[in-house]
Design a protein around this nucleic acid. Sequence first.
DNA 1: TAGTGTGAAGTCTTTCACAGCA
DNA 2: TGCTGTGAAAGACTTCACACTA
Lengths: 214, 214
Amino acid sequence: MRIAYRLLVSIPLPTVRRLSLYLREAEAMLAGGMRTVSSSSLSDRLGVTDAQIRRDLGYLGVRGRPGIGYRLSGLIKRLRSTLGVDRSRNVALIGAGRIGRALMAYPSFAARGFRIVAVFDVDRALVGASIDGHVVQPLAKLDELIEEALIEMAIIAVPAEAAQEVATRLESCGVSALLNFAPCRLSVQVPVVDVDLVSSLEELASMVTEVPDH
Amino acid sequence: MRIAYRLLVSIPLPTVRRLSLYLREAEAMLAGGMRTVSSSSLSDRLGVTDAQIRRDLGYLGVRGRPGIGYRLSGLIKRLRSTLGVDRSRNVALIGAGRIGRALMAYPSFAARGFRIVAVFDVDRALVGASIDGHVVQPLAKLDELIEEALIEMAIIAVPAEAAQEVATRLESCGVSALLNFAPCRLSVQVPVVDVDLVSSLEELASMVTEVPDH
DNA sequence: TAGTGTGAAGTCTTTCACAGCA
DNA sequence: TGCTGTGAAAGACTTCACACTA
């Protein structure tokens, strides 16, 4: 029986989001031959203040050495375990439309241990087809295959109208986290992260300072 | 000369992000034949507290009527103008790879007035091809076409290695906002919103409560 | 009566600033 | 000297709670 490491103090969500950046950068630095990194040099590269970085790493219990900085190898290990990417996870993809197909072959997922091991769609024309090495399965097989393939997470890339139903089914077959691309809120018990493309564009549009036309 | 409406007090970013949700829901309610909405009924649908909603709408200067709620038509108008989607905007898409192609035909963008009017790629095999009605242009034509087509925003869907250079060029041809799908930070003066898919999955993975294996 | 609008309180997050350490 | 770790202060955001009102 494996008991997962749990921090006593939960890490603030804004911090978790920055940890991804730290991890990417730390890995790049290690690959570039560096051994240690200081909060101020990370700060320069990422645009996050050095105090913020020290505070964030403090939450993880990562200790640096005054005058030197943080050892990259230890830092990376700790970031990976906190983010839950210290092992592979099997992921299901629901929806083999345009977004689904873009995600199927997204190499960075595999590089982080997120393995898309099953792809589903309702469309009869797609079921049975092999796309990027994934044979599209009918939704009827969802429960069966989720269990069989030990799938922990799922990516929802179906139209908004179908998303809640899919989410409910996924939850009931024991999937424990959902990445949702459908533009709607899902009502489930398991954690959900929404990727809302329209919302992102709207956020951006709201930031544009309108200037007088010339 | 058009002078854009600017609020005296800037709206908190978390509020702006929720405004997208309010807008989507308000439009659905109007389409469903409703005329008004109360903060508590919106709250039930969106999982945002009613006090939060009232506070958020207060920032926009939207006034509701006690005992009744907010008039949907006025609410929608105000949300649209705050989010900058009260008019169409021409958008360039850089990168006609998988993600780019998924975005090209994303119907919700057009529905919100974001019109992809030019598509670029470095790949010679793609340049000249017509994908979903968009003829892929060579990057060499970037400056010329951005100007000609009155493009205000751009979507970066190129590999991380190329993203900074593309961003710098876009900025220098006067594009005033960037939606970035490349997994890296961009250093530019114009506003950027990042859509980081790996980061989103990591955030999700970090939220999964690990349980003992059976 | 059913709902708004908003001071005030509370909570969460960031930044400051500096003692202390290798 | 160069950098960490962290109290304390500041700031940002959310929630409470209730006077008010159509």
